[in-house]
Structure formats: structure tokens, C-alpha cells
Amino acid sequence: MREKQKITVSNVVIHIIFILLMLVCILPLLLVLGISFTDETSLLRDGYHLIPKVFSTGAYQYVFTGATSVLRAYAVTIFVTVVGTLCHILFMGMLAYCLTREEVTARNKISLFVYLPVLFNGGLVPTYILMTRFLHLKDTVWVLILVSIASATNVLIMKNFFKSIPQALIESARIDGCSEYRTFFSIVLPLSKPSLASIGLFVAIAYWNDWMTCSLYIETPKLQTLQYLLQSLMNNIGYLQANAGASQSMETAILNLPSEGARMATCILAVGPIIFLYPFLQKYFEKGLTIGAVKE
């Protein structure tokens, strides 16, 4: 398969398609970047442009005046994302793997048990009661991790990936005297790296982007996540404007909310780290992919 790449018509067409797609995906983000570096009065006067008419870093200065809290929020978010993603993948992966094994006779029933919550859920009130009064996790970093630690959808997707692992490999491990645990950790897991990595990436994004949990359960400023800080800059304006009649102070408050530029800057700060990290993660994917490809 490793023959030298020939230049064919179909290849050229594919390249063209992807280059166009790339533009469609990247340009809007560059637009956000452009707006975040545009001077505020120029935004009001000239409208939105990809390349700033009047360049300014004011938006970033605004967001970083509270530098200490932004840095701390980065730390909390990174901790939650890393720990949460690892636990999520490990626990859900083990569950999904077992559900593919013929030996587990109740696997269909358990699958159903796993799946049902996708359809039915008790709503916010009982979940809130559970977290605060039953588990006493309000205002701790654990609640940020716990809330998204399980996902029925991911179990079912991973189950499917594990299915494609040749039974013969697992059988031979068993004959060699491997325990089921070792089989999973030293044979199944390494083989499924690419699929686990792709699921893991999305679990990580979900953790990274989750601000609602923080907003509902976290009360200490020290534990606020990055997305919470940024979303609170972005979301409040609509609510405050709709209710501005309540106090004349609100008009001043709205006036002092970040400008459009600052809001765009917060977008960039929020997605930036993931985008910078992605090439490194992707290298790991590629490695996983080649390992996956040579398996027999």
C-alpha cells in the first residue's frame, strides 16, 4: 500500500474539494479573529471586516485586566478536562468492551439499561437535589467532572468500535493465560487507540466548553472555569437589556459590558488552546491509526 502517490484526476478533484472546505471552515474563525483585533469605534462605523480597518488590541487588554482570575480559570478548566476525559474514556470504555463480549449473557439487557437514559431523563430539579443534598458536591471541583462522566451515546459508539477487534486475538490471549483485565488493558485498549482518541477528543471538547455546570453549582470564584468567565461576558447582555427597566443602574452596567470586539476576543481565548493543542493530539491519532491499521 505504501507505493508512491500518483497524481490522478480524482486526487486533484479531492484536493480541490478539501481546499474549498478548508476555506469555509477557517474563514469564519479568521473573521472572529479579525473582529477581535478591530478598534471599537471602527466596528461601529465600518461594520465587520476580515481585516481590521483600524487595528487595536484593546479587546484583549480588557479581557486580561483580570489576568489572575483568567489564569486560574485556565488551570481549573485544564484539570477538569484532563481528569474528566480520562475517567470518562476508561469507565465507559470498560463498560462498552464488556458489552461486546459473548460471555456476558445479559449484555442486551444491560445495553438497554445503558440506552434508556438517552430517551428519559428526570430533569434539572432532581439532578440538582442529587448533586447538592445527596452527594454534597456543590461548590467542589468534582461536580464539574462528575456531571459529564457518563454518556450512553459514547458507550454505544465505543461498543461498535470494540466489535471490530478480531475475536481470534482475544481468544489467543486467553489461551496464553491472560486474565480478562490484562486482555483489556494490554491488548484491547492499545488496539482501539484511534477510536478511543477520537471519542476522547469530543469528550474533552464537551468538558472544555461546559459552562452551565459551573454556573449552576460553583459559587467560589476560585473554582470558576474559563468558559464560565467568558460566557458570562457574552450572555449577560441580552438578559440585562430585556430587563433594563428595573434600575437606572442597569443602563450603566450595560454600557460597561464588553464591546463586540471584547466578546470576539473571548471566543478566541476560549477556543485558542484547543486549536493549538489539536496538532499535537492529531499526531497521536495518526500514530494510533497506523497501529490500528497493521493489526491482524
Binding site: 434539572l124 430539579v125 432532581p126 440538582y128 437535589i129 447538592t132 443534598r133 456543590k138 452551565m212 454556573s215 449552576l216 459559587e219 464560565y228 460566557q231 458570562s232 450572555n235 449577560n236 441580552g238 438578559y239 440585562l240
Partner: peptide
């Protein structure tokens, strides 16, 4: 509490006896 979620959070606290 963030103003966009204040109403929701306070009603949740009230309704769950927090």
C-alpha cells in the same frame, strides 16, 4: 451568580430545598 442564569439557579435552589 451570572445574570443570564440567576433566575434559573435561584429557582432550582428553591425547588430543591438547597
Amino acid at each position: 451568580v451570572d445574570s443570564a442564569t440567576y433566575a434559573e439557579k435561584m429557582n432550582l435552589m428553591i425547588n430543591s430545598g438547597d
